[in-house]
C-alpha cells in the first residue's frame, strides 16, 4: 500500500508536466471538433488502469515468490 501512494502522486505530477507541452499539440487537440481530447482522456484512463493492474501483479508476484 505504501508503494501505491507515490505512484498516484507521480501520475498526477506527470500530467501537469505533460500539460506544459500543450502548445505544440494544441492544433491537433482542437481539430476535428476537439475529438482528440476524448482520445487523450481514453489513453489516460487506459494507462492508469494498466498501472494499477501492474501494481496488483507485483503484489501477487511477491506472494508467489514467498510460497515457493
Amino acid at each position: 500500500m505504501r508503494k501505491i501512494t507515490p505512484f498516484f502522486l507521480s501520475l498526477i505530477l506527470s500530467l501537469s508536466a505533460a500539460a506544459q507541452g500543450e502548445q505544440a499539440s494544441s492544433s491537433l487537440m482542437r481539430s476535428h471538433l476537439k475529438m482528440y481530447v476524448v482520445v487523450a482522456v481514453l489513453v489516460i484512463i487506459f494507462a492508469g488502469i494498466t498501472l494499477f493492474l501492474f501494481s496488483l501483479e507485483r503484489r501477487l508476484k511477491k506472494l508467489e515468490d514467498n510460497s515457493k
Binding site: L11, I12, L15, S16, A19, V37, A40, V41, I44, I45, G48, I49
Partner: peptide, 8 residues
Amino acid sequence: LGLATGMT
C-alpha cells in the same frame, strides 16, 4: 484518473 482526465 478523474483529476487527470478533468485537467485534460
